[in-house]
Amino acid sequence: MTAVQTRIPVADAPAEPNRLRRGLPRIVAVAVVLVLAAAPLFLAPFATTTLTRIVVFALFAVSLDLLVGITGLPSLGHAAYFGAGAYAAGWVSINVTAEAPVPLLVGAATGAVAAALTGWITVRTGGVFFLMLTLAIGETVQQLANTWEDATGGANGLTGVPSVRLAGEPLVNAGYLYWYVLAIGVVGFALVWLVARSPWGAALRGIRDNEPRMRALGYPTAVYKYAVFVLAGSVAGVAGSLLVAQQRLVTPADLSFLTSSFALLAVVIGGAGSLWGACLGAAVVVLVRETLGASLDGHGPLVLGLVFVLVVYLLPRGAAGLRWPRRDKGRST
């Protein structure tokens, strides 16, 4: 046949630079984790606490990125699962035990169950319906947290959560607590990262790019979306259990629309689909909120709103990764 059809070894050539490119992030990743692990040895307790908040929020943002960036499911109510995990972990710490894996597992299970209960309806809708439904779910869960006072403490929140215990020892010291949070955060991040790079993750990206085509290839896309929705809910629940370990308090604000928006902002700033980016975005959001929050007299949302507007106009490429198949537009080109 023609020359085009003969197999030429050129196809294998890019393997070399690939190996280099693949090796470098690994080194960087190990270095970042090491620096993060060593941080409390050099930082003041206050700064360590801020770093703890960043790790908690980064894991939450990563779980959202799995939905928004990898699968193209733009959730506006992801804090519902974060908060549900936090409330459950807090409740079990107060009423049952605060011994280490228990609040964590309870948080993960609660996030997963909450996502499983709400997810089946949401993933079967597309586009703007998904936005609306996740928003509605988030608000509903927040109102539930506000009104169900017996379990949640109502508007005051769930107070008096004891410190997490590791092998019987309560983690009171900010540094130890940070290491606990960091360890779980790194494991959670690694989990999401592995999923994103797996054959299954490739299918999720396929759904993001072109869902009808994936169906035509024989992928039951609704099942995939449901599974990733539950997984993201579960990781968010883990992040929630870390939140309560750090704050020792959960309030309805933790599962509010505002919290969802902060996470979405972290994802968008970092560039949707990039899990590292989501972590960096989370760091930016937490730092801005903590430093500006005080000077702005609690009007953080004002800044957040302006940043949203600016990001949408100025970083269209960052937001471009968020695109999911648009049936009406995709056809005309």
């Binding site: 733009p74 936005l131 928006s261 949302p301 949203f308 507007v309 949408v312 106009y313 269209p316 937001a319």
Partner: peptide, 27 residues
């Protein structure tokens, strides 16, 4: 200008506007 962008972009923009407006009202 966002006509051909995703629903999420439009939602983020109007969300940003909503935050600014609501905070301005509170101020």
């Amino acid at each position: 200008p966002l006509r051909n962008r995703s629903h999420l972009d439009q939602a983020l923009l109007t969300l940003g506007v909503a935050f600014v407006a609501a905070e301005a009202l509170i101020i």
